[in-house]
Design a protein around this nucleic acid. Sequence first.
DNA 1: CGGTGATTACGAATCGTTTCGTACAAAGAT
DNA 2: ATCTTTGTACGAAACGATTCGTAATCACCG
Lengths: 127, 127
Amino acid sequence: MQPTEGELVILQVLWSAGPSTVRDVNERLNESSSKEIGYTTTLKLMQLMSGKGLVSRDTSSRTHVYSAVLPEEKAQKTLLRRFVDTTFGGSASRMVLRALGDGKTSPEELAEIKKLITQLEKDGNND
Amino acid sequence: MQPTEGELVILQVLWSAGPSTVRDVNERLNESSSKEIGYTTTLKLMQLMSGKGLVSRDTSSRTHVYSAVLPEEKAQKTLLRRFVDTTFGGSASRMVLRALGDGKTSPEELAEIKKLITQLEKDGNND
DNA sequence: CGGTGATTACGAATCGTTTCGTACAAAGAT
DNA sequence: ATCTTTGTACGAAACGATTCGTAATCACCG
């Protein structure tokens, strides 16, 4: 099952913060977001995700603790593949060129990417 | 205004085929798609897009001819932004690292990307 | 003419997602 | 014991996007 946009936002929290309660996630969402998201809204979404198998939950204590089932890297790769296929005709490099071309990437990030490329060139790596 | 998923599909037809009638687009959609899409569905969508300014139309003859207003490149950028936000927490560089990290990018492409980065680093570009 | 087919316009049904109100249960404090 | 707080469950409203039925209009053909 493929996560919706809202579910993806929650997955991101779980990925970056690790196993979390609904309250944790909800607070995290409201830190950044402009519009207040109700607690039960987050709860419901996470319950739905649990039903879909996107997250697992530990219900042994009263306040359930949720964890992402899909590892971040795997989910991102799948989504990336699909996205590149449908909107860049399968060419990752065209996509990358466009992504970097908007001038919003910091020098540090550029340097990091460059380093990765050099690395890839060096050993003809395949994952 | 940001195109929806369905609108994007139509835009892609207009980009690749150039100015088209509703029937043209609808037929194109039904060639590839598994599920038959009704003519008036396509029509309605294109009318909405016209209202939003995503497409323009020549109504001088009875069968209107629609053209994409948004250039492909700009749309891709918007899409990219959305995608990066929802699945990479807004970090384009993390996305790029993931994209290149799957070992499917050819040496030529890597070189090209590297060249772009060098270029960006050189003149502190801001689009 | 009158009929047939193609076209636009538009309201409304439908569908999936998100949001939240409300009910109820558990745990701790006094 | 009861009050308060914090939690889950769940139905349903709200919302946006998509889909389509239907009416009106136009153009062509006999």
